[in-house]
Design a protein around this nucleic acid. Structure first.
Length: 505
RNA sequence: GGCCCCAUCGUCUAGAGGCCUAGGAUACCGCCCUCUCAAGGCGGAGACGGGGAUUCGAAUUCCCCUGGGGCCA
């Protein structure tokens, strides 16, 4: 049987890194096995789901390089792929559950159930459904219906307590207790005490399906063979397993992935700042870098090596090698890795890098649409002299904003430290540079070194004030290269204008 | 509170009884290179949560505790 995996996001927000990581492993797994990857939209929460978010999630997944063989937009033989469009399917299966006696109508109102739960809590009992509606006869049902009660549907867990269910792979006797056995690819056997499970709701009285039920029906009807999902769903699995077996369905193989943690070791969420995948895209992170980084979270393909092309990841990926421990998302390491990929990109596809950098600068307001060809070529040259300094978008701001500004943003500390009392020096440098033609880096260097020597100042003493005067900062690309790219006219003007700053101190 | 998962440097991890005076990467700190920063080179600091048990021998197996996380309420 060929492998079928799925990623089933709720379109209630942008795709976040945790979700993307999860989707990526599903995708990797299916690609490794030459299987099918399905995208299913779990939009039953109508109040929070929007089509805009659905589209955004699709867009972000595609950007990451994750493609799906079946899904709401591309279709497929198991559609529809949106839960809201699967109403009739759930209704049909609800009926089947009922007909086969594995579920029963429950007439209890939410108020009654809440009261019951409160009582249990007060008496320090675990809150569990009493089973009141389990064995109602037709007359009693008719009466409750006549009272105007609309029944919900409950799954009949109780029946599994019947000793006539012998030991099976999924239901075993341990120390006198009946245990539901979840066989997990990552965690091995995980046992849940059947006594802890009560008859849970599968359909609300208004007819809407609950998560566990919809999930099982979807995965079954879509022939999903492997469910790779967050470990937070592990507790749901025994209930789902019971549903599969009650109907005589073959359950999928489960693998419960660790959760992605923030620096505070709490589940990564909006609270942690940048968690939407698109924020990474907007900061000049490359999808290939993200993929590589994701793969190395909770998995390790080969000792020593850390940089892998996606094809290599697909080839090597083995779900059984996944660690069960939850990793912390370390942005610093991602930045490093992205730097490695940007460096490669500079060699392999400089045009793409220029495009990305230009778009970034536009977003930051340093360039305006439409971007002229001259500006684009300036970006190209800037990227050239930035070299390995470029690891994330913000490096463009830190090291190169002055190329795109009429006047540099002067860092007060840099000014105080290097420009104070330097107006004479700036004048002399300007005079020395004035006649220089052409204005090339190697010639500039010659002139400045000669000046430094003849004035007895030394190159360091000369370079720093000039750098601050031209860029506003103490850090940045090589000074001579930067001056060439900035151009003679702007260099001379900024040296002149910086005199005012030099005088003040 | 109940149930479940997890546990090696700050972080990602290697390690599946002797190869471990615990390896790599990243981050950090020095030095070198150098016009600054970055990159690069060299070096440094930095971990098996605790306690039992098994064994000639445990990071590696088992148990308990602790800690972290998640889910349910």
């Amino acid at each position: 049987m060929s492998v079928r995996t799925r990623y089933a996001p709720s379109p209630t927000g942008f795709l976040h890194v945790g979700g993307a990581w999860n989707a990526f492993f599903n995708w990797l797994f299916s690609r490794h096995h030459g299987g099918t990857f399905v995208l299913r939209i779990e939009d039953t929460d109508r109040s929070r789901s929007t089509v805009e978010y659905e589209q955004a999630i699709c867009e972000d997944l595609r950007w990451l390089g994750i493609d799906w063989d079946e899904g709401p937009d591309v279709g497929g033989p198991y559609g529809p792929y949106r839960q809201t469009e699967r109403r009739e399917i759930y209704a049909r299966y609800a009926e089947e559950f009922l007909r086969r006696g594995v579920a029963y109508p429950c007439y209890c109102t939410p108020e009654e159930l809440l009261a019951e739960r409160k009582r249990a809590e007060a008496e320090h009992r675990p809150p569990r459904y009493s089973g009141r509606c389990r064995n109602l006869d037709d007359a009693e049902r008719a009466k409750l219906l006549a009272e105007g009660r609309r029944p919900a549907l409950r799954f009949h867990v109780e029946r599994f307590r019947n000793p006539s269910f012998g030991d099976t792979e999924w239901l075993q006797e341990r120390e006198g207790r009946r245990m539901v056995v979840v066989q997990d690819l990552i965690r091995g056997k995980v046992l849940f005490d059947l006594a802890e499970l009560d008859d849970f709701l599968i359909v609300r009285s208004d007819g809407t399906p609950l998560y566990n039920f919809a999930n099982v029906v979807d995965d079954h009807t879509m022939d999903i063979t492997h469910v790779l999902r967050g470990v937070e769903h592990l507790g749901n699995t025994p209930r789902q397993l019971l549903m599969y077996h009650a109907l005589g369905w073959r359950p999928p193989t489960f693998a419960h992935l660790p959760v992605l943690l923030g620096p505070d070791r709490k589940k990564l969420s909006k609270r942690h700042g940048d968690t939407a995948l698109r924020e990474y895209r907007d900061e000049l992170f490359l999808p290939e870098a993200l993929r590589n980084f994701f793969a190395l979270l909770a998995w390790y393909p080969e000792d020593g090596r850390e940089l892998f092309r996606t094809e290599e990841l697909i080839e090597r990926f083995d779900i059984g090698e996944l660690k069960g421990a939850s990793p912390v998302f370390d942005r610093q390491k991602l930045v490093w890795m992205n730097g490695e990929y940007l460096r490669q990109l500079r060699e392999s596809d400089p045009d793409r890098l220029v495009e990305l950098a230009t778009a970034y600068l536009v977003r930051q307001g340093l360039l305006k649409e439409p971007v002229a060809e001259a500006e684009r070529s300036l970006v190209r040259r800037v990227i050239g002299i930035l070299g390995d300094r470029l690891k994330v978008g913000s490096d463009l701001l830190l090291y190169a904003d002055f190329f795109f500004l009429e006047r540099p943003r002067y860092d007060p500390q840099a000014v105080a430290r290097y420009l104070a009392g330097a107006s004479e020096l700036l004048d002399e440098v300007r005079a020395a540079l004035e006649p220089l033609e052409p204005f090339h880096a190697d010639r500039i260097e010659q002139v400045l070194r000669a000046f430094a020597e003849s004035s007895g100042l030394g190159i360091r003493t000369v370079v720093h004030p000039i750098r601050v005067a031209l860029t506003g900062r103490t850090v940045g690309p090589g000074l001579f290269e930067l001056m060439e790219v900035l151009g003679k006219e702007r260099v001379l003007r900024r040296l002149e204008e910086a005199r005012s700053l030099a005088g003040v101190a």
